[in-house]
Amino acid sequence: MRALSLVPLLATVAIPTPVFAEAGDVLLRIRAVVVSPTENSGSILPTFPGEEVEVSDSFAPEVDITYMATDHIGFELIAATTKHDFTGTSGTTGGIGELGSTWVLPPTLTVQYHIAPESSVRPYIGAGINYTAFYSEDASTGLENAVGPTSVSLSDSWGWALQAGVDVDISENIFLNFDVKYIDIDTTATIRNATIGTQQVDIDLDPFVFGIGIGFRL
């Protein structure tokens, strides 16, 4: 009888204690992310009609913090920065190859709905807004070898964001996180040079951001 009385206790010990997500919680996540643009480029105008650019993927660490306003509703702010190269795809600019590079800082605020806040596996979906700042733009050596000293700038962007993810408990206050976002980012790249004048190209970057990491209930 005494052995049987221990069964419920042992069963309780064997089951991981859920982290939960409840009103007032602050969740910190540290992720490794892949930022993969699904770019749609216009022509490089006015000199290179029909010639477009493509933008490289990038890998980076990301930090986000979520405040749970209710058991189901959270507000997440992410912070990360990535470097991307842009390359000509055809004609004259395609022969040059890489045209330049830029750093991208896209702070994004989403409102999340946590579907099962009392479960040890907690999926969520979210939507929000994004502001993207471009900085440290730089012309490539190949471009400057072809046409001389060149300046490059990209316009900042406001857009929307969609999100889906899941938290999976490891212990009472630590969990794994898997996350994907789609972010609306539109910019105009301007290339200024004494030989070819001023060229502009509109680029819809619209990246998917795939992340995996670890989270902490603070």
Rank of each mutant, 00 (worst) to 15 (best):
S58Q: 13
P61A: 10
V34R: 15
S43I: 01
N40V: 04
D64T: 10
S41E: 04
G50W: 03
N40H: 10
T47R: 15
T38W: 04
G42L: 02
E39T: 12
T47Q: 15
T47P: 05
E39V: 05
P46V: 03
T66L: 05
L28C: 12
F59T: 11
F59Y: 15
T47K: 15
T47A: 14
S41R: 08
V33Q: 10
P49K: 06
P46M: 04
P37A: 05
R29A: 05
E62D: 13
R29E: 04
F48G: 02
P49T: 14
V33H: 06
V34P: 00
L27Q: 04
L27W: 00
L27C: 00
A32V: 13
F48T: 03
R31C: 00
L28M: 11
D57L: 04
S43T: 05
E52V: 00
F48S: 05
V33S: 10
V33E: 06
V33G: 09
A32N: 11
I30L: 15
E51M: 03
V63H: 10
I30T: 13
R29G: 00
E39F: 15
L28G: 12
G50Y: 01
E52H: 07
A60E: 11
T38F: 06
G42F: 03
F59A: 13
V35W: 04
D57V: 07
I65E: 00
V33F: 10
P61C: 12
G42Q: 02
T47D: 13
R31G: 00
V53G: 03
T38S: 08
V35L: 02
P37I: 05
N40Q: 08
T66C: 11
I44G: 05
E52L: 02
V63W: 09
P61S: 09
V33P: 06
T38D: 10
P46N: 12
S41L: 12
T38A: 12
V35Q: 02
I44T: 09
E52Q: 07
L28E: 07
V53P: 03
V55W: 08
G50V: 01
A60M: 09
F48M: 05
D64P: 07
L28H: 14
T66Y: 05
N40D: 12
P49M: 12
A32Q: 15
V55I: 08
D57K: 06
R29V: 00
L28Q: 06
P37T: 03
V53D: 07
F48I: 03
E54W: 07
I65Q: 04
E51A: 02
V33T: 12
E51F: 02
V34I: 09
I44D: 02
S43Y: 03
L45H: 10
I65L: 08
P61N: 13
P49R: 10
E39Q: 14
R29L: 03
V34Q: 11
V35H: 01
T38E: 11
V63I: 14
V55M: 09
S43K: 02
F48Y: 15
I30Y: 03
E39H: 13
P46D: 03
N40W: 06
S56K: 14
S36I: 12
D57N: 14
S43Q: 03
V34C: 05
